[in-house]
Design a protein around this nucleic acid. Sequence first.
DNA 1: AATGAATGAGGCTTCATTCAT
DNA 2: TATGAATGAAGCCTCATTCAT
Lengths: 219, 219, 219, 219
Amino acid sequence: MTAKEKTELRKTHILQAAAKVFAEKGFQDGTIPDVAKESGVSEASIYEYFTNKENLLFSVPLEAIQRLSEQIDFHLKLIRGSADKLRAILYLQLLFYIENRDFAAVIMLILKQNRRFIDTEAHHAIREHLKTVDRVIQEGMETGEFRDDMDPYLLRSTCLGSMEHVVTNWLMLGHPTDEELLGWVDPMIKTLVQGIRTENALHQCPFQHIAKPEDLDAL
Amino acid sequence: MTAKEKTELRKTHILQAAAKVFAEKGFQDGTIPDVAKESGVSEASIYEYFTNKENLLFSVPLEAIQRLSEQIDFHLKLIRGSADKLRAILYLQLLFYIENRDFAAVIMLILKQNRRFIDTEAHHAIREHLKTVDRVIQEGMETGEFRDDMDPYLLRSTCLGSMEHVVTNWLMLGHPTDEELLGWVDPMIKTLVQGIRTENALHQCPFQHIAKPEDLDAL
Amino acid sequence: MTAKEKTELRKTHILQAAAKVFAEKGFQDGTIPDVAKESGVSEASIYEYFTNKENLLFSVPLEAIQRLSEQIDFHLKLIRGSADKLRAILYLQLLFYIENRDFAAVIMLILKQNRRFIDTEAHHAIREHLKTVDRVIQEGMETGEFRDDMDPYLLRSTCLGSMEHVVTNWLMLGHPTDEELLGWVDPMIKTLVQGIRTENALHQCPFQHIAKPEDLDAL
Amino acid sequence: MTAKEKTELRKTHILQAAAKVFAEKGFQDGTIPDVAKESGVSEASIYEYFTNKENLLFSVPLEAIQRLSEQIDFHLKLIRGSADKLRAILYLQLLFYIENRDFAAVIMLILKQNRRFIDTEAHHAIREHLKTVDRVIQEGMETGEFRDDMDPYLLRSTCLGSMEHVVTNWLMLGHPTDEELLGWVDPMIKTLVQGIRTENALHQCPFQHIAKPEDLDAL
DNA sequence: AATGAATGAGGCTTCATTCAT
DNA sequence: TATGAATGAAGCCTCATTCAT
């Protein structure tokens, strides 16, 4: 028992080191020797826990994503209103990124780009999480809180894309600060929910002349 | 004259090959030998045109971004209405990505992640482009077409983030098809402009109880 | 214990191979692959022991010089008379060169020419050795065995320069044979100590008219 | 005629550039591109004048050595006394090195180490120069100005070795200054001619017990 | 279980050299 | 004659990975 726990601890330890190294240097520039140094574990030992360098990379977000997912699922049960649920998702996700910056960098900057990541258990967990978001959106449409004349996938993309864009800039440029970042959740949600246009502009949506006729009905 | 043109042609040729290689394999897994093979030029010759592997990478988007930027600037002059202008920007950008898939992949997947890219001429061109977007948003706020109670940076992030998210998925997952992708411009704009909520929900924005008091006025 | 010894042995082994390769081909023409082949060790392994090709080069003479230095210091304690001490120094040094031809070539032909070698631990050891020579000369002047109207640095240069010239030719031209070389120690010392001129010529040193007045007293 | 002169000028120009480059960086680290840049001539053009990089190197000292040799030969005719002649040789050689530092570095530091240099026309010129030195020494022995119980080769080695040692240090360490260096000719000659020992020590040459019996007679 | 030691594989890069103009 | 352009060849070095202890 203690032996197994010890092993598990060591593994976590290596994963944290890997997250830091990969976050700082990227996957290819971050080396196994780097991870060994950072974790204080020998190179050979890393291969006792992970079959591969890539396997190590893919293992970095696994546990974290699951934890985040569970957390979100739990909170969603306590919230009524689709917009509020959306808000909670973004909030918790941002909070998680802030508290686990290295993981965030690995997920947002490195894994996003790796085609093989898609076949991974971690990516499966991400897709599960996406389903949750989809469910919230679906629910919002069904209850009439959200428009139902929009592509749900686009809606999701808009929500997540906004956040990811902001997070990526935060990771790459160090802007804004952690606190400011969290403070942006509400404005972000507000923008998404209310839309850009003013009330006056409500009935003269200027691009509609390009849209297909059936879109007009949707207004 | 012809000699210089030939040289320029060769350079462009190498850049296209590099774009393809890096788009397919990533920066580190794509090798100079790969680019040499793809372009039919010797490895050594590549170094006649580019000082570095990284310099080669950074040169890939340079000309393309400038071309796109000029194109966008030109079209914007012909369009009235901020929303329509936003739409044109997204449309042209998507069109460009579709027509230059490799460049798109290099910009969206590879360079996004490279910290040194920020100090690059190409990145400068990108920042210039961002300024154009900002100007459109600013203009929309000033003319009253857009709400002016929102952070312009967030607005921009929402627009671009949505598109980038979609493009990234298109690049990584091959979904949707090229035609579908272009067809999403209008729905995307619509989502952004109109917001998510229904008319009924207009006056009961559910998350406002968290927002600061002055936000209420803004409604 | 045995493990450490084995490591040390391997290192020495590589150093000997390196000495041979560099002695035969020079530093630049002698390659790491050459050293690998000569030592029967893989290229990569060489980098386990030495950070650099240059570091490998600089490590070649390190241990040898220290050993020689200690040997000389030990013998000097047993000898009276500055000329005899000088003789011992030259003798031991020549003997060492003969017995370690590759090291000799590396020191005399290759390192002599490398400006960065000066900042090296090995070069420090050489400077220590030079101090020993200086001390002998100083002592000879103080005891009255040597003239004290000469620049000690020049005296040292004459002694070492003579030897180095002979050794360099021996290394480059293979002339004279090893035995002959050792046999030259006494004539060399004799030449240095007695000077070139005959007794008759003692008082008509022809170039003195250029020398400073006080030099005349010294005669 | 003018065409030929122009060609000759260009060649000299390249040689000077090569001397500078090789003197500063060594033969291998100094590249043809370096020489091209330094001389303002294209790389390809260098190959119009020299078959090889090594041929370029070997051509660097050729003309200079011949010029120096002729100069020395000329001056020697004007001087009586072997010691004075020796002095003139050292003086002119040092002067030449000082005035042609790059050539000096190439000869002393680079070519000394190159085995193929021996088969070169320039090396032939050097050997001719050595014969001149030998002739002076021989003459000194025959006229009774120099001892004739010494190996002439050793005598020459002592003279040249002393000088080379000093010059090498001057080149590598920048010590002494150019003026000081020339001022050392007389002390150097004095040391060589008079020997190290004092008059008192004349009849108790301490190492003689090792020397062969016939050496005793020489005293 | 943990690791020191060893290496195959391969990438980036540089240059001497050639050739067509 | 002069050179811009092109490249084959090769070296240094790094690292993921294995294996004996």
